[in-house]
């Protein structure tokens, strides 16, 4: 993102970035039973009955959905990006880019909802939606990263006698890696948000208190889900920032 140049410079490379621990730590504190209700009660936003299933369970379900989808997205997305960026596959690449653009445009909720008629209720349609939606940044960044590899470096690699596979493994993938990882980071963080919508399809997770709260007009409940899912998103973003720079 072009905005990155203006944000405050991150701490030096050698120092362990302690700031990364801030969000996960806050998340853990909020998950201690009784902490969140006690914080929210003084606001008089609504009744908070003890949670069933408990909040840490919801958080784990949420994290599990996101982790599983990210794993599948990596397994599908990277080979796909590699496949369409080989020479003489211009049309396939254009097709992939068009589909990725569509994925970016179509509302998340619509994608998730459309998976229900095919897969029924539960976590399955949510997982499918998360995979479809998560593929977007991974494939588009993968293509962008691989296409940006300097043509002269590739020519030199070919001239030095590297086979196609060696060029891919030794030159193209390492060079595309930062952009690709940035895509994985975006994909994972966005999917934390998308997974909250999955609660409407019966996937469970941290969307459940939000959806319940919104439909019961219990703002405290909404706030519990919103705070936890926001903290989860920020935690994952912080942790992944160790591996992947922002786009």
């Amino acid at each position: 993102m072009t905005a990155g140049s203006l944000t405050v410079a991150r701490s030096g490379r050698q120092r362990w970035p302690w700031g990364v621990l801030l969000w996960p730590l806050l998340l853990l504190i909020c998950l201690i039973p009784g902490v969140l209700p006690r914080l929210l009660t003084p606001l008089h936003l609504g009744e908070l009955t003890p949670f069933d299933p408990p909040l840490w369970r919801l958080t784990l379900t949420h994290l599990g959905l996101v982790a599983l989808s990210t794993g599948i997205v990596l397994a599908l997305g990277v080979p796909l990006a590699v496949a369409v960026t080989r020479p003489k596959r211009e049309a396939l690449r254009q097709l992939a880019e068009t589909l990725v653009g569509l994925g970016q445009t179509v509302p998340t909720f619509a994608i998730l909802a459309l998976a229900v008629p095919a897969l029924g209720f539960g976590w399955q349609p949510t997982l499918l939606g998360l995979i479809v939606y998560g593929l977007v940044p991974v494939v588009s960044n993968g293509i962008a990263g691989l296409m940006a590899v300097d043509a002269s470096a590739l020519d030199a690699a070919r001239g030095m006698g590297m086979t196609g596979r060696q060029r891919l493994v030794r030159v193209e993938l390492p060079l595309a890696l930062p952009v690709l990882l940035a895509g994985v980071r975006t994909s994972t963080v966005y999917n934390v948000g998308t997974a909250t919508v999955g609660a409407a399809l019966g996937a469970g997770g941290l969307g459940e208190p939000i959806i319940n709260g919104l439909s019961q007009q219990n703002t405290a409940l909404v706030l519990v889900g919103a705070v936890l899912s926001a903290l989860l998103a920020l935690s994952l973003d912080a942790v992944l920032s160790l591996f992947a720079p922002r786009e």
């Binding site: 300097d150 470096a153 020519d155 690699a157 070919r158 006698g161 086979t163």
Partner: peptide
């Protein structure tokens, strides 16, 4: 590939691996 590994190759754009 075998042929190329036995021949040095230098190009204008240099093409070092960044």
């Amino acid at each position: 590939e075998t042929l190329r590994r036995g021949i040095g190759y230098v190009i204008q754009q240099i093409g070092l691996f960044p």
